[in-house]
Design a protein around this nucleic acid. Structure first.
Lengths: 345, 345
DNA sequence: CTGAAAGCGCTTACAG
DNA sequence: CTGAAAGCGCTTACAG
């Protein structure tokens, strides 16, 4: 008959151990102020009574919640890639948070950056979290202004420094990644390439666009860029559009695995050989890149390590250190079967 | 100069409004005990002062955390499908939780059911969450015993009633789904089918195995079942194994999109036409099913609605209602290009 | 309808 | 080293 024992508190432990509440608190928290003997006894009694600290009480008295807040933006249609990214990233975050006994407080909203902003504002005002992780930052994002107005709130942004200007951010290697792809294709002899990019409201889209354009111009290459959502239909359609051009590209880099797979399919269905006539590279690797025919060359990054880095930054901020922006780990170009030297025409 | 105003409390509001703390509390919480005039004034003052309730204080005094706890199991390798499922499910959960101002407290662990169990135990003891959502239940899962021993803890399981026996569970329609597929293939003339199933520790694997076997026997069909992880390599390998048999199946149903896509690829690479010689159906639809060639017939379910249902159950438990187990919405069979009538041999 | 008071469980100066 | 006490911000009986 395991009686659901009415929650046991430090007062109970103190009584049982024959010491004061403060002694118990000091002992339990490993703080000085009690003799080793007392500490040992308290620890022993507490464990045997099955005592666990009450979260709310602790938070109220020490003004720390041991939780970091993240609000995930969900889009009905293109949720897939973003969802996986967030999940892996959170896994990394949890990995660093766990040893410190921190949890994630998660909210999801379909209301975009504005809705997310309201939640963070709420969290700041109510002291619901110790720090915030911000992902999916858009141009003119209201969350930027919010955290500028609240320098006392701890937050790290997953974004670009050009956008967050001074706010602690873990910035992507998208610029570098874009240049790496361009150089790779250049090495294969491609001179006329194209991008099937993501929506232009995303910061990383712009970053990739610009870096690609810049590197192409340096190498004397031409690049056509088309934008669209991360949908198979879009990849298909834009690929066909590119192939319609009189002077169609010999390589296409797609901003996501979904569009890349679709583009490859569309090209092949139209009688264009991949990689014979057309090389395709996917930005962001995933199982669908290896399941596709041919297997897609992809720009790969360890998403979990992004969460790990962000978590470490957050924890340091919570510890009172001042943290600077940091770069993500660089991308890796994984060469598979969808890219080849440009064919002699 | 937006001074980060030192956190404002109901005491401040009370002072400013010229009433007592209790009056403020009653007014703010919409409880009787204050005149309409007082209430209006308090509300007004509170808003103008930018007051927000302190979470910890509220939790401590009313013993509710306005948070529901979920711990996500992460496996390094086969994390993909499960990750997406969890994400969509959580999105649904958030959708119902949001209007009630509840958040999700999320932890992720690579330590399996045992590690998850320890976290839930911690949460129960420390009063960290108001209720728990349990996913990825295994046979002999320690979390079952934990919540049996703690009937005061509110939890809903995403599992099968046969496993949770009496604990409130949102149970899948896997049995029904399996039968639906079998009948569908039977209707196409298939009599010898196979399953490329998931690992046998998963409850849903067993459920599907059993329902498939039962329905096949009822219809006089034969079914070979092979188990393996949710990896492309496994799908490929098991598909080839099945095709090696002298009397190879005319249809294969794969427990996940990853294995299904890989199986189709492997078959085609081996010169087996899909769906001409071999039909393939994927369990759990995803973008990769529509990106594949041919597009895969799949068993589809609205994962988000699972989260919605679970959330509603949880909320009702929190409200003190006693809730019974409920079924998920049924699967839908989405016919695409990977299934066809069995060819006359 | 309204105010003064106790209590939620823990932490932390402050005296012994 | 140890105990008594105040305080974190809110809720909720309990008297007026």
């Amino acid at each position: 008959m395991t009686m659901p024992k009415t929650t046991i508190t430090i007062t109970d432990v103190a009584k049982a151990a024959g010491v004061s509440k403060s002694a118990v608190s000091y002992a339990l928290n490993g703080k000085p102020g009690v003799s080793d003997a007392t500490r040992a006894k308290v620890l022993d009694v507490a464990r045997s009574m099955g005592w666990k600290p009450n979260n709310a009480a602790k938070s109220l008295s020490d003004a720390s919640t041991r939780t970091i807040g993240v609000v995930q933006l969900v889009d009905d249609a293109e949720n897939f890639g973003a969802g996986m990214f967030a999940m892996d990233c959170l896994a990394g975050l949890c990995q660093v948070l766990d040893p410190r006994d921190y949890s994630i407080t998660l909210r999801m909203t379909a209301g975009g950056a504005h809705a997310a902003c309201r939640i963070h504002e709420e969290w700041i005002a109510s002291g619901a979290v110790d720090a915030h992780l911000i992902m999916g930052v858009e141009l003119g994002d209201p969350r930027l202004a919010l955290f500028r107005a609240h320098p006392e709130a701890k937050a790290v942004f997953l974004s670009q420094r050009a956008v967050t200007k001074g706010l602690p951010t873990l910035y992507s290697s998208d610029d570098e990644g874009a240049r790496m792809v361009v150089r790779y294709l250049h090495g294969l002899g491609h001179r006329n390439i194209a991008r099937i990019a993501g929506p232009e409201e995303y910061v990383h889209t712009i970053t990739r666009d610009q870096a690609t354009a810049d590197e192409c111009s340096k190498l004397g290459m031409r690049c056509t860029t088309l934008h669209g959502k991360y949908l198979a239909a879009v990849g298909e359609q834009l690929c066909l559009a590119l192939l319609e051009f009189g002077d169609s590209p010999t390589a296409i880099v797609c901003d996501t695995d979904v569009t890349a797979v679709a583009a490859a399919r569309a090209a092949i269905a139209r009688g264009v050989s991949v990689p014979g006539d057309l090389s395709i590279v996917a930005w962001d690797d995933s199982p669908s890149c290896t399941s596709a025919t041919p297997k897609l060359t992809a720009l790969h990054r360890d998403v979990r390590s992004i969460g790990v880095k962000a978590g470490s930054m957050l924890l340091r901020m919570i510890d009172g250190e001042s943290v600077d922006s940091e770069p993500e780990d660089p991308y890796q170009l994984i060469e598979r079967d969808s890219t080849a030297p440009v064919s002699e025409a």
